[in-house]
Design a binder for these strands. Structure first.
Lengths: 208, 208, 208, 208
DNA sequence: GATGAATGAGTTTTCATTCAT
DNA sequence: GATGAATGAAAACTCATTCAT
């Protein structure tokens, strides 16, 4: 339970006062995880990617591997939220927002393909008994919950047919994750076309 | 069929002469990967799960970790194909087959939750430069291709509206993967209800 | 909390079914601790002393450094108890036993100088919040308690004057520890003479 | 006396121009060594105890870890000598001085328990080939020698019986070290009572 | 076939120390 | 003087793999 060796002293500050080095390491970790997967993402590879001469630097800035992974997850969520929120602001109406959701997320995939690949890799390795991922799990859970509420509101507003909103959210999330995987494997993947197709798909799936 | 199972690692023999030991190790590996993820699935944990006293036995039966993972993937695909094929045989009509597809896969999830969780974990860790996963990738690619052709045929037959079949397959696959993840995290997850909801969802999404 | 990787499976067996390798490592550790102190007794030095090619072997046989240190303490206590018990058996009468105590312990020092030096080093580094040393602390506590009872019995029998037996035991133990330190620093230290002098000293200190 | 404290590491300056920072670090090191032992007393822990934000400050003020340990030993000896000398000044007669010796040292233990615990820890880790400890060893050797001479003088004066003064000094030192260890482990340890008991013990042990 | 000890490369982590600011 | 980031060596530990029995 000892205090951490990290130069950032206050838990609450962590996300805000990220030193340049910390950010650099986190971004290197994102690249490496996206490229080789979580199992083979060693400190050695991350240090090399970050241009650091030793892995000790990583241990200096992070309490351990879990802490780094946590920071990676937080950074990806931060970047994603910022990007998607900006894109979605303009949309109005439930069906319009649904279409915009896919447009925003596939634009995000276009902009940050390795961030999303790294996130998928992390999520696929999350296990319920892994305390370092509670933050990510909670965050994703909150997003899911908010989306369920939006579908519910759309149903009450008469824009959507009756369906289980939880399953619908699950399906939209799954479709996006599958797109992320496809984009990682196929460099020719057309995100814009995919966005349009998914929007059509779920428009048909939800409308009355 | 040969008279006795041989641990000699000849590619051609492998699929046919699986010794009981090999199968035992593969099943232990499936359990462990499902439980702790790929990154933490060490030979030590797998040997323990298999009730083996040393990891040497694993190295004896498999050329290396990649070989074991490959065998794990093959076994999961074998079990899944067998299960789903049996369930799907009875269905007729394109829309009926689509509904049956979800019923079959969620029944599979009910029966083999850890197999599917392990498979998801593997797929999420596959990287394009990983030769040991080519088999799995090819197999999944073939399934995807077949499903695309079915959607295409359904469109030609006038049962489905016009959409990009590749994206539709991707979305169905993604929805199932999301269901697998949910089932792993939430023991109360209702597979039958989910199957029905997904069938409705994609019926709406594909019909004219 | 996971089960240990050590080849010895049962906690209770540990002290009895020590593999030859375990014993070899423990004895190497005793030598190294006696020679360089606890702070500088690294796995590398211990492996070298034991003639092992890597430190991995130590990790294979012991759960960690604490476990090794614990085994070291247990082995020294075992050897010491066996030696001293044998020597003390013949003595009779409280004052005779007291004299015999010093004779036995200094003969022990003659026979196992590095064992005792290592033990002193360990005891000096024991801290109350160090769970791996509870065993040693308890064992030493039990010995102390038994010795206190003997002094008390000697007082009741009229062989000893009135004094605080706890302090007397502490003083005898301290004198022996000081002798151990002297012997480590001074190769010419005469254990037999010291035994006689200490016997005289405490005979005068305790008699009526 | 120089005008300003200089961190330049000249042997001759060191003892005279201790900067406040140096003293602060030395005292923090004493606390840490007493609390966690020498093996686990890292610069990081010492810096934290001293309220310093980095370990760099320690390296700046001391040539290395050995230098710091040396300074720790010197400081403890300085404090102890000052305290004990003051207490012993009043005593007269050999037997009285012997009693006073225990009173003084247990009063010292009462006043500076962590200093003495740290010293015991250091002494127990001293090895003959450790040049940085020569100073401490020599100092302790001088004290021992002086005490031997006092016992010898007491014997010549007819106040003490015949015994080996070297062993007697060793026994008194050992008894005190054992008391220091007890005090560290048992907060309820009664130093005054112990002082009286040890005085009685060694009075009986030495008188004619 | 089976065992478990042994190996050595590789992993995370900690350490004392240095250096630019 | 003081800071804290950086370094690189060394530490403990884990891993897949090999080998004699």
């Amino acid at each position: 339970m000892q205090a951490k060796a990290s130069p950032v002293k206050q838990e609450t500050d962590r996300t805000f006062t990220e030193s340049a080095r910390r950010a650099q390491i986190v971004n290197a970790a994102i690249e490496v995880i996206a490229e080789v997967g979580l199992a083979k993402a060693s400190f050695a590879k991350i240090a090399k990617q970050a241009g650091l001469s030793s892995t000790g630097m990583i241990s200096y800035h992070f309490q351990g591997k879990d802490d780094l992974i946590q920071a990676v997850a937080a950074e990806i969520m931060r970047v994603s939220a910022e990007f998607v929120t900006g894109k979605l602001a303009a949309e109005s109406g439930f069906r319009g927002r649904l279409r915009g959701y896919f447009a925003a997320n596939l634009a995000l995939l276009d902009e940050y393909p390795r961030h999303l690949r790294a996130l998928s890799t992390l999520v696929a390795n999350v296990r319920s008994d892994d305390p370092s991922m509670y933050g990510l799990v909670d965050q994703l859970g909150a997003i899911t919950h908010a989306q369920i509420e939006i579908f519910r509101a759309g149903q009450r507003a008469g824009e959507f047919r009756e369906f289980d909103p939880a399953v619908m959210v699950m399906a939209t999330r799954g479709a996006l994750d599958a797109a992320i995987a496809r984009a990682g494997a196929d460099p020719a993947f057309d995100t814009a076309a995919c966005a349009h197709e998914l929007a059509e798909l779920f428009d048909h799936a939800t409308r009355k």
